[in-house]
Every structure is written in C-alpha cells, then in structure tokens.
Design a protein around this nucleic acid. Sequence first.
DNA 1: TTCCTTGTTATACATTCGTTCAACAAGGAA
DNA 2: TTCCTTGTTGAACGAATGTATAACAAGGAA
Lengths: 210, 210
Amino acid sequence: MTKTAAAKAKPRFARVDADLRRQMLIEAAIRCLAEGGIAAFTVDRISREANVSRGLINHHFDGISGLLIEVYEAMTQSMLAAGRETLFFEGGPEERLTAVIDTMFRAPMFSKSSLRAWLALWGEVATNPRLKASHRKSYDAYRRAIGDALSEIAKARKVKLDAEALAMTVIALIDGLWIEWCLDSSVVDRDSARAAVYAVLEARLGPLKR
Amino acid sequence: MTKTAAAKAKPRFARVDADLRRQMLIEAAIRCLAEGGIAAFTVDRISREANVSRGLINHHFDGISGLLIEVYEAMTQSMLAAGRETLFFEGGPEERLTAVIDTMFRAPMFSKSSLRAWLALWGEVATNPRLKASHRKSYDAYRRAIGDALSEIAKARKVKLDAEALAMTVIALIDGLWIEWCLDSSVVDRDSARAAVYAVLEARLGPLKR
DNA sequence: TTCCTTGTTATACATTCGTTCAACAAGGAA
DNA sequence: TTCCTTGTTGAACGAATGTATAACAAGGAA
C-alpha cells in the first residue's frame, strides 16, 4: 500500500455544510466549558475536541469571542426550547407552571455538564456587555412565562399575590439550587431541590398538581 | 539634582511585612476578579494593580493557582467574618437569623464588585477540587448557622419544619438573587431581594421581627 | 472527465501567559 | 557607621494564546 494509494483511499478530511460545522463547533465548545470552565475555552482545546484544525474556528466565527457569544445564545435557545414544548402546553396555568419547573430539574438542563457550562458563562456575563444583553432578553421571556402562569393561578384561587416578584423568587431559587448541587452534590439532590421549589410555591398558592 | 541624589531621596520601593504584602496582593487580585472576571486573574494584571513587580507573586504565593486558592479562602473568611458578629449575636434565634440575612444584603457582601468576584470564583469551584473542598466547608458552617436558628424558631412557635431543607432553600435563594441582581440590576434591587427572602420565610414561620 | 467553489489544513506571527533566577537594596541589628 | 537578612526587582525563558494567510483538496457542477 503506497502513500498515494492510502491518500486516495481515505480523504484527509470530510467537508461539512457550514451551518452543521458551526453547530458541531459550538457543541464542542460547550463540552470544553463543562469540563474545564472558561479556562478551557481556547482555540486549541475546542478545535481538538471537534477534531478539526485550529484555523477553522476563525473561518466560521468572528474569532474566539464571537464563538463565545454564539455558544451563549445556543445554550439559552436550547433552554427555552426545552421549555417551549411546555410553555405552549395545552392545559391550564397549573400544568404549564409545573411543566416549566420540572423541565429545569430534568436532563438536559439538570446535568452536571450543562450546569457547569452555565456557571462558567455567568462569570463572563457579568463582564461582557454583549452577553449581558443576550441574558437579559432570554430571562425576560423566562420570567414572563412563569409570572403569567402564577398570575392566572392566583386569580383562579382568589389569592392576593405579586406574581412578578414571586416569579423572580422562583427563578432565583432554581438558579441557586443549581449552584448548590453543582458545587456540592452532597447537600442537595434532584428531588429535594425540586421539592424546595414546590414548597415555596405551595406555601403561597396552596397545593399544586404535580 | 543628580541621579544618585534622587535615588537616595526616594527609595525605589518600600519593603512591607510579608503578611501585609500577601494581604495587599490578595486584595488586588479580588479587584481584578471583580473588574474582568477570571480572565483578568493574571500575574501581569494583579501585580500592576498592586503596584509591584511581576516576580513578587511567586515569591509570596505558590504560583498564580496558589494565589487563587488563598483569594477564595480570604473571601469566604470575610463573608463568615461579616456574619460572625451576627452569628454569635446576643439575643434570640430570630435576631440571629435576621442579622445573618441582612448581612447578605448589605455592603460589603451586597456590592457589584464583591458579587462579580464570587461569580467568577464559582465558575472555578466547579472545576478545581481544592476550591471545592474549601467551598464545602464554609457553606456547611453557613448552612448550620441558619438551620439552627430556624430550628429554634420553629420549635418556639410550635411549627413543624424541616429546618435543614429550609436553610438550604434560603441560601440558594440568596445566591440566586445575587446572581439576578449582578447580571441584570433592572429586575431586582436590594430591597426587593431582601423582601423576597423574608416572604419565603414568613410564609412558613409567620411574621418575623425585622 | 474537467473545472471551480469553498470548506479545511497548516504554518507563521506577535502577544501574553506563568515561572525561574540572579542581582539589587531597604531597613533593622550590631 | 557596618553588616546582613529578606523583601523586591527586572530580565529571560519556553509554552500557550488568538489571528492572519497561503496552500490544499473535497465534492458537486458542467
């Protein structure tokens, strides 16, 4: 088997549609983020993780910082998408609310790799204005979805309630429980975290179907 | 004025006691963390921030990663110290509980710079085993302080309560509110965040002195 | 087959990173 | 004053960073 024969038999690389390749690179970047935090978000590691050459990142993205933006937007998209099937769920506000909450305590959201990646990104959001803008927009949608459901439930049950404030509380609680579990799994697990959220809600709204 | 005369008049640097210098470097590192996240945690930036030469960090610490450890421990120490005067506060469990909570919504804890630094560190805790161990220890103390107070209050009021679970909830909620405020101050402020914590507690325990 | 578009590689480059180390000098001790 | 300890500097080093660019080649179009 000569060198040229081998070269003919097996192409040195496979061409991939640009959009697909971008997606592959974004996914590889998220894996790096989950494994090594923001320190692992480098051209070398990401391109190696994606099994492509270093140069390809700059071909498909606006540099490494451009990739970071797109990674953040991809993650918020997939979070909202995970909730979307539940956000526009057929059924009353109670079903919608519990569906959204349960989504946050189930894979793919509730997983070490995903939450580690989020944790790494939050540290950058505080500093990076573009990430901050993206964060604000997606959290508004998130907060509104929960707030609307809470508002409807409270109205139906004739409970006086600041739905926006409680939505903020629920989201903060979920984020905080994610962190506790991510940094020290010995003090929380999936079920107790989920139960904590429902305990807070039921203390205000009364029993919820779940 | 000759060169030597000037040199005699103004020493090129001032010698500082080792412990004090270490503290100065740690504080400079925290300032960098708050300004630029973990990406700004470099020898160059920190030594410039502290107005010393690059070499000094390796003289006083076990490399840049050693400094990171000590920065984390210094921050947890100062958090616990901020609460300590309230942790061993004279008075009943109710006063102790409200004192600890209020500490978390008052400077120096509740400030953009402090919380940005925490956010940057959390992203590293998930990856770094030594940071993780340090985190676990300090949060145990934190959780126990709140849990004990909650337990005493519940007992006095004859309220059935899982104090440990509620302590976890309170801490997660505080962390989550910190994040929301840090990443988007338009949706929360100090007072509404603090109010959210008390609302959760009072829904279980009844009215609290505050 | 012969093109030609464009996804892909590989190298080179200037910076910046963390660490090491010899030399320096501040400031107290004698 | 004269030591001497040790906090401090500054340069040097290799490794790693992100970017730019020329050469390559895969795979469809003609």
